[in-house]
Design a protein around this nucleic acid. Structure first.
Lengths: 213, 213
DNA sequence: AATAACTGACTGAATGGTCAATGAAAATCT
DNA sequence: AGATTTTCATTGACCATTCAGTCAGTTATT
């Protein structure tokens, strides 16, 4: 369903914010296409059609197709990053609670839904052969992993742990990713709160005394 | 590096096995292309060039590009499936040892290496928009999960568990997948035996009495 | 008046797929 | 066993379509 370009969209907008609006609109259309057609079938013509704009206009806002795809990935990335970082900033200064905050944030509806995961995985699938993608994806993923590991290490010195921090972090992150994939299959899979509870269960098993503090 | 087509390749081959040889050769070339270029840049011309055959010949053995990609995925799938199923069949009738056998098999060099994982992820990335891929990938993945879950349930009744069988299975499988992704990054990441040991650590934490039996 | 936003027609290259022609192996027939 | 016909494997030229990107010209904003 193409977003109709009505005059309303531009009410009270100057040219700068109008340009931003268009870019966002095109990024949204790109995600729709990737979700429904896959990256290999996502063409400029189709993206433009879905956005309700001409292909020429698309290339006015993004100089090349690659640039558009890269910006789309960057948008996804920023959204993902700010999501867990904000959650972490809002959590109290307690590693156990912060760990839980990160896990909970991972399943926020804004980032953890079928469409977004679908697009995310499409980029991952292409990242090996596109260094630019790899850099964006990889850096983000690493920041998340590092933070998770740091929290596990902090928890380890406070309470007794049944797993080394590195293994704990790997298993928690792996379980999150696995559950994410589950959302791809459809509504028959996990629900968000179910998923969170399941990962919490793992955390409790690794750090038995954590909840009682 | 295209596989040169020398007469030697066909020494002692009849037409049927020659055809099989060609198909395998083309599937191999397809995986090379997907690994190095990504699915979206993988074209018939490039696959044929890498195999050292004409594009016409490629389409003689596989009627369409889609058919070739599907067969490539099917090959990967069969290899993966037989790998863990054979390992399971060779293991003794003990759920704990069988679980370990499955984990160990997951990291076998034949299936767990940078190229194969790269191709595998490329297909996953496209699977949402291609029901045919999804069916192949999904069915395989489900068989593996189901078996893992069944083993966890069997272990649960034998020894005490710190996690429900379903959560245990999810965390183990997730950790395996997460470590797989690690191999994509390159030689700086995990080594195979390191990865196996890490997952075993998780198993020991979930089922503390398992090793002593 | 100047500049930004936008359109639609256009282009050259690339892509998936077809086809007639050719050489080689297999089956069939003397 | 040798000759002949049929089938298979293979090529390279060819085709229609699609693709990303260009451009001259139009409309709206500043």
């Amino acid at each position: 369903m193409p977003t109709p370009v009505t005059e309303k969209n531009f009410a009270g907008r100057n040219r700068k914010s109008q340009s931003e609006f268009r870019k966002q609109q095109l990024i949204e259309a790109t995600m729709d296409c990737i979700d429904k057609l896959g990256i290999s079938q996502t063409t400029l013509a189709r993206i433009a059609a879905r956005a309700g704009l001409s292909q020429g206009n698309l290339l006015f806002h993004f100089q090349t197709k690659e640039a558009l795809l890269e910006q789309t990935l960057r948008f996804l990335n920023d959204e993902y990053k700010s999501n867990w970082q904000d959650a972490l900033a809002a959590a109290p200064e307690n590693p156990g609670l912060q760990l839980r905050a990160m896990i909970k944030a991972s399943f926020a509806a804004r980032i953890c839904n079928r469409k977004k995961i679908s697009v995310w995985m499409a980029f991952w699938g292409e990242s090996r052969s596109r260094p630019a993608y790899m850099r964006v994806c990889g850096a983000n993923d690493k920041a998340f992993s590092d933070r998770l590991l740091a929290l596990c290490e902090a928890i380890e010195v406070q309470t007794d742990a049944r797993l080394s921090a590195s293994t704990a972090a790997l298993s928690i992150e792996g379980m999150i990713d696995g559950l994410w994939q589950n959302f791809l299959i459809g509504p028959s899979g996990f629900k968000r709160d179910q998923a969170i509870r399941a990962v919490f269960e793992l955390v409790d098993a690794i750090y038995p005394g954590l909840t009682d503090e």
